Amino acid sequence: MFRKKESNNHQELDMNRIPKHIAIIMDGNGRWAQKRHLPRIAGHKRGMETVKTITKAASQLGVKVLSLYAFSTENWKRPEEEVSYLMSLPGKFFNSFVPELIANNVQVNVMGEIDRLPKATQEVVNQAIQDTADCDGMVLNFALNYGSRREMVLATRKIAKAVQSGKVEIDEIDADLFSKSLMTGKFGANADPELLIRTSGEQRISNFLLWQIAYSELSFTDELWPDFSADSLKQAIYQFQNRDRRFGGIKTNK
């Protein structure tokens, strides 16, 4: 785990060691707006532009999956006006950005309990998924109405039903089967993030990809999400590349 150091120095990335899956907890939109004496929704609007910037930067670097925590199952507790605006953001985002996503060969995926979103939001999300279905480059994976504990409960139910129907034996239940039963299972070898970034200075996971980040490198930066840039992303990757990742083992000199 590490905190990102602010730096204006350019560091050379090893393009052969770019994380295949990067997950980001996009935090700080509200505080960004409040610092400027603006309504919180102004921060969310600016944060949407950051999503576009980081998506293109990650795709150009060769990232395979970019998972963005857009709306958690706990975010429904926010003021009604703010929630209503957040539910309108997918429409504003995809209407303006889908052509660029297609041009950059980026496929949209959305994980979470989509069927519990407002009907208009569901339609926009499903349309974006459909419009980019033929793209086979980076996957832009939005976590929308998502909570990791809920995800694990749903995966457990899925496995239990498979056992009940005789499709799976109890002794066949293992970590691999559980991983495949999660919402990220469709990403195969890229299901688990190698790097998790959280902006705004908070140092917690907030119910995001709890199973999948067992061996992820964690990066916490004081930058608020609307201020996060392509250079910020490169700095986090540079620090990732300088970590000693042993996955519970030790390295021996040969």
Rank of each mutant, 00 (worst) to 15 (best):
L61C: 11
I205N: 01
P118A: 05
L196A: 09
K92G: 04
N16G: 01
A33H: 10
I54F: 12
L209E: 08
E123L: 10
L182H: 03
S72W: 03
R149P: 07
L101M: 15
A236H: 08
L117M: 15
R198F: 06
F94S: 07
Y238F: 15
W32Y: 09
M183E: 06
I24H: 10
A143Y: 07
L233T: 05
G28A: 11
A189Q: 15
Q241R: 13
K64I: 00
W32N: 02
E6H: 13
F2W: 00
G112Q: 00
R17M: 13
V83R: 03
V110I: 08
G30H: 13
Y215G: 00
R36M: 13
R198G: 04
T53N: 11
D222G: 14
C135N: 14
F240C: 04
L68R: 04
E100S: 14
H37W: 03
S229L: 06
K45A: 12
K234S: 10
E80P: 01
A23L: 07
E202H: 08
Q127G: 00
S200C: 09
R78W: 02
S88N: 13
D192K: 14
K5V: 13
L233Q: 06
V163E: 11
G185E: 09
V65F: 05
M87I: 08
R3L: 07
F228W: 06
G249N: 13
T55L: 00
Q235N: 14
R78P: 09
G112H: 03
L86E: 03
K119C: 05
Q164T: 14
K158L: 04
M1Q: 08
T184L: 09
I54C: 08
Y238G: 07
F94K: 03
M111D: 02
A175P: 07
D231K: 14
Q127W: 14
P193E: 11
A143Q: 02
K64D: 10
A236G: 01
D115N: 15
K5C: 07
A175C: 11
H37M: 08
F178N: 06
P226M: 02
K45G: 01
T55R: 01
S84M: 08
T221A: 05
S206A: 07
A57M: 06
K167A: 15
F187H: 14
F220C: 05
S84N: 11
Q60M: 05
A230G: 10
M26A: 01
L89I: 14
N9M: 08
E12F: 01
N104S: 10
C135G: 03
N104A: 13
V65L: 09
R40T: 11
T184H: 07
L117G: 11
A42L: 13
N104Q: 11
R46V: 12
N95P: 05
R78N: 11
I250M: 14
D176K: 15
L196T: 07
P79T: 08
R157H: 10
V139S: 04
S67N: 06
S59T: 11
K5W: 09
